[in-house]
Design a protein around this nucleic acid. Structure first.
Lengths: 146, 146
DNA sequence: TGGCTTACTGCAAAAATTGGCAAGAAGGGG
DNA sequence: CCCCTTCTTGCCAATTTTTGCAGTAAGCCA
């Protein structure tokens, strides 16, 4: 991870921001949680390393990381916002609006759409972590029963 | 609008919820605002009709409406959540993660992707209001300058 | 229409998130 | 290596959003 940390530091600096111990700890904490994690979990983890870090710093830093693309956030509309370290490979999720189930999908499915948006609208869709809401097969079947 | 209200009432009832004056007023208020509106605006509008309606009711009701698909919400990551009455025609938005600018795009662009997700993953993507985050052309140019 | 069940609402308190500000520290230049 | 500028932080207060609860009323059935 130390190796990766250095890369991240460069990204932060390149964007004109400063690399502080707080930011490193927070990034490590998000990293440490494999997969999705919540703000509360990150906070607990960070406090173990440095109990003086304030919640407001966490909010601000997480927001910054999302802006920089280091961290990916996913609002599953269940009251909690999830955070995840940005993975090198692009992956996306289908989230069922009914049962909340989440499923990873292949990048290839959206490639063409992303390209078309880029050429038609000159807009670079963030392909790091796309979240598509909808209804999964199981729930759709259930709904049509009634 | 009265005609539409009746349709909406049916949807609410069909989902097993009750139609109350408060809910009608809130739906009307979202309707009255053409296009995007914020929670604060809806609150103000609702209070003109019935000053006794509480904020918590508004929060709960808006959340319910979004679940039912009557209202569409868009978190532009600028601190405010936007609400909009679900339109009969499908439309989608590109939101720039940098400058927050928002742009409507054509449904055709995503049609193919939606179909592929349906056939490959048996998942019906909610095509009512898709929000794609990314970087708009202007901001992309700005970023590469540095 | 009257009575019953249970969802909905308003209120108050709690919890989460954001913002202002002065002190502290990162990074650049000498 | 020290200094200077300016971004960051922690603290505190304000604001926003959520939650628990008891009274109220919508919808159903006789």
């Amino acid at each position: 991870m130390s190796h990766k940390s250095i890369e991240y530091e460069d990204i932060i600096r390149a964007a004109g921001h400063r690399v502080t111990p707080q930011r490193i700890h927070i990034l490590d904490a998000v990293c440490a949680a494999n997969g999705h994690t919540t703000l509360g979990e990150v906070y607990a983890r960070v406090r173990q390393v440095d109990p003086s870090i304030d919640r407001s710093t966490l909010y601000r830093t997480l927001k910054l990381f999302v802006e920089l693309g280091l961290v990916v956030s996913a609002d599953k509309h269940d009251g909690e916002t999830y955070y995840e370290i940005a993975k090198p490979h692009h992956h996306h999720h289908l989230v069922c609006r009914k049962c909340g189930q989440e499923r990873e999908i292949d990048h290839a499915v959206i490639t063409r759409m992303v390209e078309q948006v880029l050429s038609d609208y000159d807009f670079r869709v963030d392909t790091n972590h796309l979240i598509l809401f909808g209804i999964c097969g199981a729930c759709a079947a259930q709904l049509s029963d009634r």
